[in-house]
Simulated assay, not measured.
Amino acid sequence: MDLTGLVWAVGRRLPRRVGDALARVAAPLVSLGRLPAVDAWAETVERATGRRPTKGQRRRLLENWFRNALWSLSLAGWSDADVLRVARISAADEGKLKESLAGPGLVLALPHMGSWDLAGAWCARVGIKVVSVAERLPNGVYERFSKARAGMGMTIHPVDRPDLMRTLAEDVAAHRLVCLLADRDLSARGVRVPWPGADARIGVPAGPALLARRTGADLRVATTHFDGEHLRLQVSEPLTGSTAEELMTGAVAVFADAVRRHPESWLMLRRVFV
């Protein structure tokens, strides 16, 4: 078994409380070293919020990163009760999801915050069918990734799938929730929009906006952040705009507000501003 396979095999069997304990122990130790990825996160957060992260926030960022990674490996084995116990969402925000899904359909734009995998697993437990997209990573990683998320109740399409937009439009029409990470553009075909409160722009994918316009679905933003042993989920009102750039400008405004409130849950370990 290769190293990737070993990590996957061990991680998927790790009980949640054990993984959380490991994250709490590892984060202070790892934070003692100089990590370029964490330095990049700190620079990005300072640019986004106007405040330099403290040592405590750097430690919590690492704890949250470890936690998210371990949860992603093990979530397929969580009980329904454990998912529902850890995830927290208000009745109003849950209602927003169900209102859009019962009506015009729903596309959710998400930042790399908190645990988007747990958010998807929670949706599956309350009867919402979730669809998302992932890079086709090498060495069997994509296949493991897709199979694990199927175990959580989610369907994952590879980003290079032919006619992906048509497939996602069919998912919207079938009242499935299409969730797309949208705070980093991997295609170089996205749009550059302003980050509120900063003299900077960020490149984001246009896909969520284009899919919503193509299908007539609502476009909302969902953000998640760690809160003690829980994960808090929040859902925006439908975004408005006549162009992809206007819609994604609205999405980034919601991202920016969430990052200001919970910078240590923004797991963006790179520079993103242009």
Rank of each mutant, 00 (worst) to 15 (best):
R161D: 06
K147W: 12
L181Q: 12
M152E: 15
A244P: 06
A124H: 13
V252G: 01
V133C: 06
R220G: 13
D199K: 14
L231S: 08
V126M: 09
D199A: 14
L233D: 01
A253M: 08
V133G: 02
R136Q: 12
V141Y: 12
Q234E: 15
H230N: 15
M248K: 08
E170W: 00
R189Q: 09
P194A: 10
L239F: 09
L118A: 05
S242A: 14
F226N: 04
F145S: 04
V126Q: 11
V193H: 13
V130F: 04
V191M: 13
S115I: 05
G250T: 06
M248P: 06
H175K: 15
P196Q: 04
H225M: 00
V159T: 06
R125E: 11
L233I: 15
H225L: 01
D183E: 01
L231A: 09
G228Y: 09
A244H: 03
S236D: 09
G203T: 12
P194Q: 12
E229F: 02
R192T: 14
I156D: 05
A134L: 01
D171K: 05
D199L: 04
R144A: 12
A209T: 13
F255L: 02
G151A: 05
L219G: 09
L137G: 03
A119D: 02
S115M: 03
A253S: 14
D160S: 02
M154L: 11
L219N: 11
C179F: 01
V172A: 03
P238M: 08
A209E: 11
P138I: 10
E245N: 05
G153E: 08
W116Q: 09
P138Y: 10
S236H: 06
W122Y: 15
A182P: 04
V191C: 12
D227T: 03
G140A: 12
D163T: 00
V133F: 06
V178S: 06
R220Y: 10
L186M: 12
T243M: 10
R161V: 06
A212N: 10
M165W: 00
K129E: 15
P238I: 12
D183V: 05
G190W: 04
E135N: 02
R192D: 11
V141E: 07
A198S: 14
H230R: 13
A174D: 14
S242F: 00
S132E: 03
P196T: 13
A188F: 08
G120Q: 10
T224R: 08
P208T: 09
L210E: 13
T240C: 03
G153S: 08
W116R: 02
D185R: 06
G197Q: 07
H157Y: 15
R125V: 04
D218C: 07
L219M: 13
G216E: 10
L233C: 04
G250D: 03
V191L: 08
D218A: 15
T155N: 03
E143P: 11
W122N: 05
K129S: 14
V221T: 09
L177K: 07
G197I: 09
V235Y: 10
L168V: 02
Y142R: 02
V254C: 12
W195C: 10
